[in-house]
């Protein structure tokens, strides 16, 4: 008799992803769905998708979803979570959303120790609007608004939001991962699961920053895009646990 070893997670709908070939969003969506299934929280999870390419995340994730204005996901999520504390609430945000227009909301949600799980997808560009410079864009990187490359004293330095939020006393867990290889994908899933678990344990604010690839706006093939993340992006944004208050330091 055939044994089923792989299936669509219950928390994932049957919609076909609209994302570009090689984009990291579809992988990350699936990982979130798998984690929700494994934690058995599909019926009490509410997601807050961003403005940007993942604005349609609610088409794919089969949980209650509530839209937020650009940058305000953490405030909307705060409202949901505080109003119904038994729910598991996560935000899904891009770099522009979480680290530019929504910086204040991010810093203060972390500082209040909101029991939220933030999924922060960092691909260094504003994807949906056509590849403009993001707060996380690397020094020298060419975008549609930095045609000659990002010049820090003109365009600002790449902003490391995860480090910023780690400073906030209310954050309990922050890890940076990527989805460029099966090994990294598995690590990302583990991190996402931990970030949800932290919320369920009522510990505080948890965030996973996922370095993702945007082949379309980077004008690279999917393979080249993954390579760029590993060779260039990770140098500015090294992977690893940035903060974990459940681990005693030695």
């Amino acid at each position: 008799m055939a044994k089923q070893i792989f299936k669509r997670p219950e928390a994932l709908t049957e919609h076909i992803f609209h994302y570009c070939p090689g984009c990291g969003h579809s992988i990350i969506h699936r990982l979130i769905a798998e984690v929700i299934d494994e934690l058995g929280i599909r019926e009490k999870t509410v997601g807050v998708p961003p403005a940007g390419c993942a604005v349609l995340a609610y088409n794919y994730l089969d949980v209650d979803m509530g839209e937020a204005p650009h940058g305000r996901a953490m405030a909307v999520a705060t409202g949901i979570k505080r109003a119904r504390p038994h729910l598991v609430v996560f935000t899904y945000q891009g770099d522009g959303d979480i680290a530019a227009i929504g910086t204040a909301e991010s810093v203060h949600a972390a500082n209040r120790g909101e029991r939220l799980t933030a999924i922060f997808v960092n691909n260094g560009v504003y994807g949906m609007t056509g590849g403009q410079m993001a707060p996380t864009t690397l020094v020298g990187q060419t975008t549609t608004t930095t045609p000659g490359g990002r010049l820090p004293l003109r365009d600002g330095f790449p902003l490391d939001l995860s480090q910023m939020l780690a400073v906030a006393a209310g954050s309990v867990y922050i890890e940076r991962t990527s989805v460029t290889s099966p090994k990294h994908v598995l690590k990302t899933k583990k991190a996402i699961k931990k970030a949800f678990q932290m919320q369920m344990d009522d510990l505080g604010f948890a965030l996973v920053e996922i370095l993702s690839q945007c082949p379309t706006n980077w004008k690279l093939s999917p393979i080249e895009a993954c390579r760029r993340v590993e060779d260039e992006v990770m140098k500015s944004y090294p992977l690893g646990v940035i903060k974990d208050t459940t681990q005693t330091s030695n």
């Binding site: 807050v48 909307v76 409202g79 109003a83 729910l87």
Partner: peptide, 10 residues
């Protein structure tokens, strides 16, 4: 936006 979230939650 917090009010929006709380209202979403009913």
């Amino acid at each position: 936006n917090m009010v929006m979230g709380a209202s979403m939650a009913g």
